[in-house]
């Protein structure tokens, strides 16, 4: 059974003069126990999708079910089954970590004693026991995020919605959070997470849906998406402009590139890019080949496909940021 399924979700925000179609017919299908990454730039409609699926917003058209319950007609049931950790850590700054979790526990209808016990468990799991009696004002961004996530796990939800869980965190906190999310997956929790980073979706998601302007423009695993963009690439800037064409010919031969379309050349910037299926080992081949031909290299690097590349390939336009209201 699908833990989350959505068909034809549409949501338009009407302003005084303009109307923004935040969702333009989104279909989603997340099998139980899997992780779906909703990948898209700022303004793509990710948060709106999460809001609809967690009953915060009624869609203008389309239907969505979570664990078989309609998000509009059975909103109350859905709310008791899912956990949500929003885009910004939504915690009370003036309460302590322990108080925040106790409060959320009570609102999930635990008894006072159960809520206390659950708060202790979660504080321990999330490595916050030491900070438990400090107000949230004193927490770092990463700690707040962890506490926020802990709050969404109080009722042992089978389905978890994480809206950009690591945006704005330092690399160390991001790794911590990834680990926490992986632990939930191991417990069998179904997760829908949104992100702006292909890398993050790659790390955590079983499958990815790329959203742009409110609709899904591509689906697949991280590998499938990267393959669409052509995987990793090597970018070389040669020293002398006259060498550019010759360098590309040499590399096409040396790396056995069958499809000349897969390479690019910009003579005025002396830049060429070639696919690098072998990753860093291809880098060595490139350097050797050019060195043997006495072509001087001004700059060289391995480029992993980014969300921008995926966008460029899929839409033909860059992942522009829509102005947020």
């Amino acid at each position: 059974m699908a833990a989350i399924e959505a068909t034809g979700l549409v949501k338009t925000f009407k302003g005084r003069k303009t109307a923004v179609k935040a969702l333009d017919g989104i279909d989603l299908d997340v099998p139980e126990g899997t992780v779906l990454g909703l990948l898209g730039p700022n303004g793509a409609g990710k948060t709106t999708a999460v809001r609809v699926l967690t009953t915060l917003l009624k869609p203008d058209a389309g239907t969505a079910r979570v664990l078989g319950h309609d998000v509009v007609k059975e909103a109350d049931t859905v709310r008791s089954l899912v956990g949500l950790s929003g885009q910004y850590a939504a915690v009370d700054e003036l309460l302590t970590g322990r108080e925040n979790l106790w409060m959320f526990g009570r609102l999930y209808r635990l008894s006072s004693r159960q809520a206390k016990q659950r708060a202790e468990e979660l504080l321990a799991t999330f490595d916050l026991t030491e900070a438990a009696d400090r107000t949230l004002k004193t927490y770092s961004g990463g700690m707040r995020r962890r506490l926020d996530l802990a709050g969404s796990l109080i009722a042992h939800p089978k389905v978890l919605f994480l809206d950009e869980p690591t945006t704005g965190l330092d690399p160390r906190s991001r790794l911590d959070l990834w680990q926490i999310i992986r632990d939930r997956v191991r417990e069998g929790v179904t997760i829908l997470l949104t992100t702006q980073y292909l890398e993050e979706a790659d790390e955590l998601a079983d499958s990815i849906a790329v959203v742009d302007h409110g609709s899904v423009i591509a689906r697949g695993t991280a590998d499938e998406l990267k393959a669409k963009v052509g995987g990793e690439r090597i970018e070389v800037v040669v020293h002398d402009q006259g060498d550019t064409v010759r360098a590309l010919e040499l590399l096409t031969d040396a790396l056995g590139i069958a499809d000349p379309e897969a390479t690019t050349i910009e003579e005025h910037t002396r830049r060429i890019t070639v696919p690098a299926p072998g990753g860093s080992s291809a880098l060595v081949d490139v350097i050797r080949t050019l060195d043997a031909a006495a072509i001087r290299i001004a700059d060289i690097g391995l480029r992993r496909p980014t969300l921008d590349d995926v966008f460029l390939t899929l839409t033909g336009h860059e992942a522009e940021e829509k102005e947020s209201l």
């Binding site: 109350d76 949500l84 009370d92 609102l107 999930y108």
Partner: peptide, 17 residues
Amino acid sequence: SKGLIDRFRSLPMARSG
């Protein structure tokens, strides 16, 4: 503005709470 209302609304609590 801190997103707390959204959070409360996502909980199975009374609307008036």
